[in-house]
């Protein structure tokens, strides 16, 4: 059969091209809206005051290039400390969320016991009810435990906050794991603990990464609990540090922009590393519920 370029075929092809152009136009337009503000802040953080005000949209040039903002931030603010605080809080909380969450999810998905369904619902309640509503009592509790102005207080709260969603996602995923492989390990003589650590954990590693990224964002970015539980200079997180730094330096634009960039960059770097993981994780299981 010879191919004849019928009018219908041609119209179809033109239509498809037009549609594709439309799709790209919309997506591109929104992508620009999404990243333009970030770009403009990062760009201007590398300019001097004149450059920032006279040509805010231009790339830094030799006359306008300057890192004075960063210099101010690094000397005036205690950002290295804030970074290490944020890092400690985030990493330790994530570790606890993933470890404890995976343990609980394993128990809920693997074993038949009386309270199983009830416990599942109890833990998942936390997804619906924001932990912040208990702030009043959390603060009192931390005062009683003498944990105010410690990183531990933040770690405990963030762990409690992150566990429900982690348990939920991990339980859903672990239910899909083959029962055979755990049984096989049992026949091979592994204890229930070793089955969890040596068989189940390696199998859920990809999902753990997704849960990690998801849980990380609200912890790293939180302002509320650092403000209330750990606002001392020694325990400030980056987010709180930036917030207060900007409060003091409102007129020093280079410093403000530099501090913002300093807070943005690590998140972007992490995101660049994990973004594929994140997407595939979301599409794999997070929306099942």
């Amino acid at each position: 059969m010879s191919t004849v370029d019928t009018t219908r075929a041609r119209r179809g092809r033109m239509g498809r091209l037009g549609a594709a152009a439309g799709v790209h136009a919309v997506l591109l337009a929104y992508t620009i809206i999404a990243i333009f503000p970030v770009l403009i802040v990062v760009l201007n953080s590398f300019k001097n005051r004149r450059g920032i005000f006279t040509e805010p949209l231009a790339l830094p040039r030799t006359e306008t290039f300057s890192v004075e903002g960063y210099a101010t931030v690094l000397t005036e603010g205690n950002f290295l400390l804030y970074y290490s605080n944020s890092l400690i809080v985030t990493v330790v909380s994530l570790f606890l969320i993933l470890l404890f969450g995976a343990m609980a999810a394993h128990a809920l998905s693997e074993y038949r016991f009386k309270l199983n369904a009830l416990l599942g619902v109890y833990l998942i309640l936390g997804i619906m009810v924001p932990i912040r509503l208990g702030t009043v009592a959390i603060l009192q509790l931390m005062v009683d435990l003498s944990l105010v102005n410690t990183l531990i207080s933040l770690i405990l709260v963030y762990t409690a906050q992150g566990l429900p969603i982690a348990v939920f996602i991990l339980t859903e995923f672990m239910r899909t794991l083959s029962r055979d492989i755990k049984d096989c390990a049992r026949v091979d003589g592994l204890s229930e603990y070793r089955i969890f650590f040596e068989v189940v954990l390696p199998l859920v590693r990809p999902v753990l990464a997704t849960v990690a990224v998801f849980s990380m964002i609200p912890i790293w970015n939180d302002l509320w609990f650092p403000l209330i539980l750990a606002s001392s200079d020694a325990t400030k997180t980056v987010t709180l540090g930036v917030q207060q730094f900007i409060g003091q330096y409102t007129v020093n634009w280079s410093a403000v922009l530099a501090s913002l960039s300093i807070a943005i960059l690590p998140v972007l770097v992490l995101y660049a590393i994990f973004s594929r993981q994140l997407i595939s994780g979301i599409t794999a299981g997070a929306v099942k519920g």
Binding site: F100, L123, L125, G134, A137, L141, V157
Partner: peptide
Amino acid sequence: PTVLIYSIFSIYPLI
């Protein structure tokens, strides 16, 4: 661990 941390720092404060 999950039940304890969650109960103490999430559910108890709410109540």
